[in-house]
Write a protein that binds this DNA or RNA. Sequence first.
DNA 1: TGTACATCAGTGAACGCGCGTTCACTGATGTAC
DNA 2: TGTACATCAGTGAACGCGCGTTCACTGATGTAC
Lengths: 228, 228
Amino acid sequence: MNNSGRRWQRRSYHHGNLKEVLLEAARKLIQEHGAFGFSLTEAARLAGVSPAAPYRHFRDRDALLAEIARSGFERFAARLDAAWNNGIPTPLSAFEALGRAYLTFAREEPASYAVMFETGASAESGGEAIQAAASSPAAEKAFNVLQQAAAALCRQLPETERPPLKLVALHIWTMSHGVASLFIQEGSAAKKVPLSPEEVLESEMLIYLKGLGVLPEATDGVVSTEQA
Amino acid sequence: MNNSGRRWQRRSYHHGNLKEVLLEAARKLIQEHGAFGFSLTEAARLAGVSPAAPYRHFRDRDALLAEIARSGFERFAARLDAAWNNGIPTPLSAFEALGRAYLTFAREEPASYAVMFETGASAESGGEAIQAAASSPAAEKAFNVLQQAAAALCRQLPETERPPLKLVALHIWTMSHGVASLFIQEGSAAKKVPLSPEEVLESEMLIYLKGLGVLPEATDGVVSTEQA
DNA sequence: TGTACATCAGTGAACGCGCGTTCACTGATGTAC
DNA sequence: TGTACATCAGTGAACGCGCGTTCACTGATGTAC
């Protein structure tokens, strides 16, 4: 990379940044036209290069999608990890931050989120590369953060009342994903609801935590004074 | 329709059943090739008719997708309603049946489920017809069943501790959808988990209900003896 | 500091393909008399 | 019961399009000497 100023905008050859720009273009297109209604050609057009250019950086269309998933999982894991922050200052407050971070990621990167999690019914065949990304180390790391949080919460319980950690982590995950999937993706089924996704998820988790037994009694009020 | 036997297999003209057969073919293709990786032409081929034939029954590709969503919501609502069965014999047992019915539908009709709920990021533009289906009377009816269940459960609480019904219904919905979306769609992120979707959802809902305060104390055991 | 050259990252034209959709058509069905 | 006819539900050929991908190419960059 040269140091003659940051104005390499529209330099002819050697874009310098193409790979990242293509990923960004693809995410934008996916956000607008749907998880699999995007085309490599159009992404190239948006990036201002010829339709053949992407092949210098990705083996094929699928590889680009897989990279969106992979890098998405990486940022996702980093976000969750930062929000959880090892359960500091308290497991409960960190847990709330974790839930909000989950929703924030889904809102800020809906395209990444869709490729990461709506892959099942959207590209069963043909999408082997994406499947691989879904079981990548980064994806694993993201789930591990949830599991750490579950562990910290359960540690507050007497051993005889502890459900399996993995199960609790899955519960947290399904609640978060359920809210993100139903309420954040544009045009989703639940547009008319007057509550923010955050409000729904937080109240849901409070009730769940109370059921787990990790909330002091004082929280009754929080749950039931939300609305008439 | 003629009564000369039910063997109208491969009659030349006048298929008689084409609309339904096309929908079925489309569902099969969606299940195999992804929610929006299906083509009208291929569905026609699968149904054994020319690529122009579908246009006698659907204005365009989008209209067929919308009909999958609409009729999907109808069967979905019917299933949930039957399972809930007005809370008989007890709200709690009916509630469990409701959750199982939700997962059963998602498993038996993954294509319908995907079109109904994964529409957000998959066809924002272009999918107006599907969006319309998502706010159809049938979709409304499905959500109403969840709301009825929420109402029946909350009725067991003293009025001062009742959270808003709509909120509880949304909690139920996000839990169910979260499990269905993450665990049932083939090739989804959570294949390696040794638990069935039903086990995950049921345990999750038990904890949630306990947090709500509608479970008698006896259920502690149910939650924590599932696994070591 | 200057030149030769390998490598890298683009171009642009071309391909074959399957798709959505249209069109004029035609065979089968059902109804009126 | 038989014939005439409107309507319905298909056909099959054709179209224009955008896509994914390939290919031989070329301009820019970085390195060896």
